[in-house]
Each structure stands twice: as structure tokens, then as C-alpha cells.
Amino acid sequence: MALVFATNNPNKIAEIQTQLGDAYDFKSLKKIGCTEEIPETSPTLAGNARQKARHVKDNHRHDCFSEDTGLVVDALGGAPGVDTAHYAGPERSAEANNKKILDGLGTRDDRAARFKTFICLILDEEEHLFEGVCEGHIAVAPSGTDGFGYDPIFIPAEGDGRTFAEMSREEKQGISHRGRAVAKLINFLSARA
């Protein structure tokens, strides 16, 4: 089955390709010639996932899926949420984003947070939505060199006290928000095969 993943983020592509394996003819936006900036103007993660998938389907005529992920920090009023990628500014700097969260939390004890991922699949003109959530908390300082984005400061509740950036890709996928959403996507596709 040919399936386009509506992103050019190489980290997300690598994570999801590992999970999808060889069962699908997996294509990135670059492989289908989609070079334009895809809008993400929805006030919700699910809305942004849908908007990106719909753009690819309407403009490039491929069955596809898209995802949007947000980090929700309770003590910051749910921020960064839908603004996760550009929380500290339009340059989308992971280091600046992490610093802004750590500065915002300061020495607070309440560091509860969760990652949420929504995947929107458009298959034969039908839309399907899958959600993955990973509960955890924010570390007091960055730790680890693997992963990307907020991985150096997010400690999953189901882990062993390490940040996502201290885990291997396989360890992270087993408990992560994106891994869980992709697992639901794979189960759905397998049931239709």
C-alpha cells in the first residue's frame, strides 16, 4: 500500500518509518514533489493534523497521513500546546523552546506534563483520527543527546527516570505519544488489508 506521510521533518520520518516497516510503500512529501509550506492554522492539534493531510490529498491526490504533536505543561497553563514547535519564536529552536519551558517552571515542584499526538489518515476519501498520549514530567535540566525537540527535558511516567533523549529510539517508541498513535494507525490499516 502506498502511503504518504505529510511531513519533511527527518526525525519524525525516521521514527515512523521504523515502526511502519516494509509493509507500506512509505513516501515523504519530498518524494511526491510537495515542496510548498503546508498551513497549520488550526487552534487544535487534531485540526492541524487534519489540515495537513487534507492539503496533501486535495493538492497532490495521494492517500496520506499527517500528525501534529504538542507538549502540555500543567503549571504553564497547558503551554506550549499547539504552539509546541515555535514556542520560543518562529525559528523553531529546540534549545530555545526547552530553555523557555525550564525558565517558566523555575523551581516549581509541579512539573507534570504530557505529550499528545494526533494522526489524521485520509484513505479513499475517508478521514480517520488516532490519538496517542504519554504522561510524564519536566526535568529540572536537559539530559541526553538522542531524540529531538523536547526529548532532553521530558521524563515519561512509564520509564525508569530517564528523559526521552537518554533512551534509544526503540525504547522511546515503546511508550511515546507518537509511537502509540502510530500503533493505532497500523492496527487500523492491518484490519483493512
Score class of each variant (00 low, 15 high):
residue 56 V to S: 01
residue 105 L to H: 03
residue 19 Q to Y: 04
residue 94 A to T: 01
residue 87 Y to P: 14
residue 49 A to M: 12
residue 80 P to Y: 01
residue 109 D to K: 03
residue 86 H to E: 11
residue 101 I to N: 07
residue 103 D to R: 08
residue 27 K to D: 02
residue 22 D to E: 13
residue 44 T to L: 08
residue 31 K to A: 15
residue 20 L to I: 10
residue 10 P to M: 08
residue 88 A to K: 07
residue 100 K to H: 06
residue 26 F to N: 06
residue 103 D to E: 14
residue 35 T to V: 05
residue 40 E to A: 05
residue 36 E to A: 15
residue 61 R to G: 12
residue 19 Q to C: 14
residue 88 A to C: 07
residue 25 D to V: 11
residue 46 A to T: 09
residue 49 A to G: 14
residue 99 K to Y: 02
residue 47 G to V: 09
residue 16 I to T: 14
residue 56 V to W: 00
residue 32 I to W: 00
residue 19 Q to I: 14
residue 84 T to D: 05
residue 86 H to V: 05
residue 42 S to T: 01
residue 88 A to H: 06
residue 91 E to A: 07
residue 68 D to A: 09
residue 79 A to G: 12
residue 69 T to P: 02
residue 107 T to P: 00
residue 73 V to W: 10
residue 42 S to P: 02
residue 101 I to H: 08
residue 64 C to W: 04
residue 97 N to T: 09
residue 73 V to K: 03
residue 60 H to V: 08
residue 69 T to C: 04
residue 33 G to P: 15
residue 72 V to K: 04
residue 82 V to K: 03
residue 54 R to M: 14
residue 104 G to K: 02
residue 109 D to R: 08
residue 39 P to N: 05
residue 42 S to D: 13
residue 93 S to K: 08
residue 82 V to P: 08
residue 32 I to L: 05
residue 33 G to S: 13
residue 75 A to T: 05
residue 81 G to H: 02
residue 36 E to K: 03
residue 87 Y to Q: 02
residue 62 H to E: 15
residue 20 L to Q: 11
residue 39 P to H: 04
residue 37 E to F: 00
residue 94 A to Y: 15
residue 41 T to N: 15
residue 51 Q to T: 10
residue 103 D to P: 04
residue 71 L to F: 07
residue 28 S to C: 13
residue 13 I to T: 14
residue 62 H to N: 14
residue 109 D to W: 01
residue 24 Y to F: 15
residue 47 G to A: 09
residue 59 N to D: 06
residue 15 E to W: 08
residue 75 A to E: 11
residue 57 K to E: 03
residue 51 Q to F: 04
residue 93 S to L: 08
residue 69 T to Y: 04
residue 29 L to R: 00
residue 98 N to T: 10
residue 27 K to M: 15
residue 15 E to V: 04
residue 104 G to S: 02
residue 16 I to Q: 13
residue 39 P to W: 02
residue 109 D to G: 07
residue 78 G to M: 04
residue 83 D to L: 05
residue 96 A to H: 05
residue 12 K to H: 03
residue 73 V to Y: 06
residue 101 I to C: 05
residue 67 E to Y: 10
residue 55 H to D: 10
residue 16 I to G: 12
residue 110 D to Y: 01
residue 61 R to E: 11
residue 102 L to Q: 05
residue 43 P to L: 10
residue 74 D to A: 09
residue 33 G to D: 15
residue 102 L to P: 00
residue 20 L to N: 08
residue 13 I to G: 06
residue 83 D to W: 03
residue 105 L to S: 02
residue 70 G to S: 07
residue 79 A to E: 11
